[in-house]
């Protein structure tokens, strides 16, 4: 089983990111689960969401305390939350930041840390700082949890009901993140 924990702030689509991860994995014929750590959902408040991926049905419902993959959608939460809690030398870390790997203050092996300036891509392509789909491209690249085709399909499934433009923009953003 692979366990994923996502940190970010209310309004940044943290919960949607976990859902997209689960949908993408399910699209690759895996069992998947996604759920938020339900807070009082104020815009800007630090929040967490979780996902699990496995080959067999997922039964446990506890929060993710020992993530295999840690995603930080907003590096500023690191001042308020110990994002590395429960992580180990194998945990893959994907951080939205403009900082370089060496400048990131995180007591985890450098080779497992993958910074991406997702905010820059989001502002350029989506016109607002919603980075969840972009992060998904980075996850697809840094892990073998799911394929890019599964990610694109997940974006269509999640946003297809809203507008084609939103789907197209997010797919463009995710491709850019993947090819960086």
């Amino acid at each position: 089983m692979k366990q994923i924990r996502i940190h970010g702030r209310g309004g940044q689509g943290v919960v949607t990111a976990a859902e997209l991860i689960a949908i993408a994995a399910f699209n690759n014929n895996k069992e998947a689960q996604a759920f938020p750590s339900f807070g009082v959902e104020r815009t800007g408040a630090p929040i967490e969401a979780f996902a699990r991926i496995d080959d067999k049905p997922i039964r446990t419902r506890e929060h993710v305390y020992h993530p295999d993959i840690l995603i930080v959608q907003d590096a500023s939460v690191m001042a308020a939350v110990d994002v590395a809690k429960g992580c180990d030398e194998k945990t893959i870390v994907i951080i939205n930041t403009s900082l370089s790997k060496d400048a990131i203050k995180l007591n985890l092996p450098k080779e497992n840390i993958f910074p991406i300036d997702a905010t820059k891509i989001a502002l350029e392509i989506l016109g607002k700082n919603i980075v969840n789909t972009i992060i998904l491209g980075a996850v697809a690249k840094s892990t073998n949890l799911f394929t890019m085709d599964a990610v694109k399909k997940a974006i269509k499934q999640k946003f297809g009901g809203k507008s084609q433009e939103l789907v197209d923009k997010n797919i463009k953003a995710v491709e850019l993140a993947y090819n960086m």
């Binding site: 976990a18 069992e31 998947a32 689960q33 996604a34 049905p57 419902r61």
Partner: peptide, 10 residues
């Protein structure tokens, strides 16, 4: 509530 209502699964 939340644990099933807001969770995605197959």
């Amino acid at each position: 509530g939340f644990v099933l209502t807001h969770t995605y699964e197959g």
